[in-house]
Nucleic acid binder design. Sequence first.
DNA 1: AAGTATACAAACATGCATGTATGTATGTAA
DNA 2: TTACATACATACATGCATGTTTGTATACTT
Lengths: 207, 207
Amino acid sequence: MARRTKEDALTTRSDLLDAAERLFSEKGVSRTSMNQVAEAAGVTRGAIYHHFENKLALIDALMERVRLPVDDMLEELAKTHNSNPIAMLRARCLHIIHQVQHDDHTQALITILLHKCEYVDEALPIHLRHLEGRNACISETEVLVDLAKEQGLIDPTLDSRAVIMGLFSLIDGLMYNWLLEPKYFDLNQTALQAIDTYLRGLEPRSP
Amino acid sequence: MARRTKEDALTTRSDLLDAAERLFSEKGVSRTSMNQVAEAAGVTRGAIYHHFENKLALIDALMERVRLPVDDMLEELAKTHNSNPIAMLRARCLHIIHQVQHDDHTQALITILLHKCEYVDEALPIHLRHLEGRNACISETEVLVDLAKEQGLIDPTLDSRAVIMGLFSLIDGLMYNWLLEPKYFDLNQTALQAIDTYLRGLEPRSP
DNA sequence: AAGTATACAAACATGCATGTATGTATGTAA
DNA sequence: TTACATACATACATGCATGTTTGTATACTT
């Protein structure tokens, strides 16, 4: 085939990302060859190596593609729930849960991260990106907890960092287990109850 | 080399499992070849294929090796804390956390399961074993929650299954995140606080 | 003591995945 | 319109992982 329009090229690139996202989340990263990705996108391996340096760069591009929407979402939520820090925390958690259930791209990517890729040093850049994202999110959210403490909404003797780690771990664990076997339990119900249970456990003790 | 004693053979087998456990948890399952496992154990690939049918059987044997100790542990705990179901739940959770931190075999295996292997259909037997273990554990633990309800220790309006899923997910998430970057937070402290927070959130509302 | 089974080593056969180098037709800019 | 850059396809070179087969020295059996 010959050269195509710049727009066509972008379409090809996008098709490749879609194919990779689907195949990776279905068959796992290491069990999916570049050839399979190319075929699923209707091109040859030449196209992949033109757009991406190698498999890692491909995965990296996958993650980059969802980073911006996620950032936007966080900002959006920040505006609507700026009154009560606990309510905002809750809103964020529930939004993530909702997103994993109903947005295909999110679900596929989280599946890849949690179940379909190996965290080996070879994949360090991805590893780091994941950690950075998490740590940034944690640090940012920690502010909310401190705020809630000041307002007397949560027990002041609790360690803020640990409060957040617990909450995030709860979310991670719920997603992890649900994606493992989605029909085993209802994510919405379970997450709602579990999150509220946890948040309730944070309340200050009545003297 | 020639044939060796039966005991020697068992030693070889054990060495192979040790090597596999270490390499898999360090470099990931798919990035570790049978040859590397053999070399690390001081033998050739012939020895592996003599003891195990293939890589999956090797992993399966790894999981089998820790199954019995875990079962024993659960029974042990059941005897000591049979008075208060909540206390028992708590003891179980904390024991798992402790085990992951201080028992090398447990830590390596959990690392493999959570971070160093891909859940693909090819590895279905392992997948199923993991799920079975989890589901059995959940069903069994659900009884404790029901018991606690009867004793008025937790809010009776809560769904028992969801209570357990939440608690288990919390543990899973804590292990997941800690194993990702162990120095980022102290697992003991964080888990203790998070678990107690969750358990406290389960208490019945004072009217 | 002899025969057999065992515990591996060594060699072979195959296939696939990666990376790279080259070819080529077309869009695009001067 | 020409010259170059682009967007791929095609072909090649290499290497490694797997599975299997065969060989062999020794432990075990009777």
